[in-house]
Design a protein around this nucleic acid. Structure first.
Lengths: 162, 162
DNA sequence: CGGATTAATCTGCCTAGGCAGAGATTGCCG
DNA sequence: CGGCAATCTCTGCCTAGGCAGATTAATCCG
């Protein structure tokens, strides 16, 4: 099914452009909410991931958040330094570092949840519940397609142009 | 209308997370398409904007692409250096720099259109035409909401945490 | 007209993210 | 058992993006 035609394609009518704009606006909006709470967006999502699924590894979260593994090491350094996360070598596979939320980490992440949820609800205010469900389904289907096409599900290293 | 509840909110069920993931996957996919064509994604979108609307200013494009004005100066430096774009002081308002595609710039952008459109169509393959239209409408409504809430429509400078 | 305010772009500096490669560990297979 | 490839994390280095302030130009208003 060929939806877009090269002869009529413009930036304005592109779902790609809309996706980029929407996610960027939302991120900026959320990022504002973190001002004065001592967390960045990436730090917070990392803590959320660990809250919902304890004992994940650094690699798991990296793939999940589509974050560079090198950069992520430094995110973890910062979180550990501030006592929000504990690193622990896995006994089963000593290459792996298992991550755990500390009590303080759990407190920090929970403190932000209502704020983030509030902002998200605001952003979705003009959509009905049914529309939000549809929205999620469409996103999921597009994601699934992109992931199956991607060589290695998010661990590709991107080459930058000069 | 409160869709998400702080007590049941998880990363997985969040439209925010899906948006981020989807737009990031799509961008990586497109970025790959530019390999070997001497353009980055941002450079290409800039050229597209100029193709569809000649004589825009740097500020216009910045706001439109949600790009930092400082960083954008350097993008333009690069494009001008390679002869794809021409800067021209406006006579009406000499603070303003009007941007124009050169013939070479037009060629470069047009060369990429079919490739990008192909990738985008691939990514949307599992959605029907009607669904893609719906998708676009939902995105637009969310964007509109976020823009009306934002203090200054994309020109806010974000404070970063240490 | 003149001073103050606003607007648009550009420069300097810093940080987060991205890539390559090192180091350590495991799993595979002859 | 031994070597080789694969996996996972981390370090070093570089670049794009982000912020602040400087510069130039226009506009407002007395």
């Amino acid at each position: 099914m060929k939806h877009y035609d090269p002869r009529t394609y413009t930036v304005d009518n592109s779902v790609g452009y809309l996706l980029r704009r929407c996610s960027s606006l939302l991120r900026d909006d959320l990022e504002q909410a973190f001002d004065g709470h001592g967390l960045t967006f990436v730090q917070w999502v990392t803590l959320m991931r660990l809250r919902d699924d304890p004992a994940l590894t650094a690699g798991d979260i990296c793939r999940d958040l589509r974050h560079d593994s090198g950069a992520f090491t430094r995110v973890l350094d910062h979180l550990e330094e501030h006592g929000l996360v504990r690193r622990e070598r896995s006994e089963a596979d000593r290459r792996v570092v298992l991550l755990h939320l500390t009590a303080e980490g759990r407190r920090a992440v929970q403190e932000m949840v209502p704020i983030v949820v509030g902002r998200l609800n605001d952003a979705l205010q003009d959509l009905s519940a049914a529309e939000i469900v549809t929205f999620g389904k469409l996103l999921r289907r597009m994601i699934e397609r992109l992931e199956s096409a991607a060589p290695c599900a998010g661990m590709v290293r991107k080459g930058l142009k000069p």
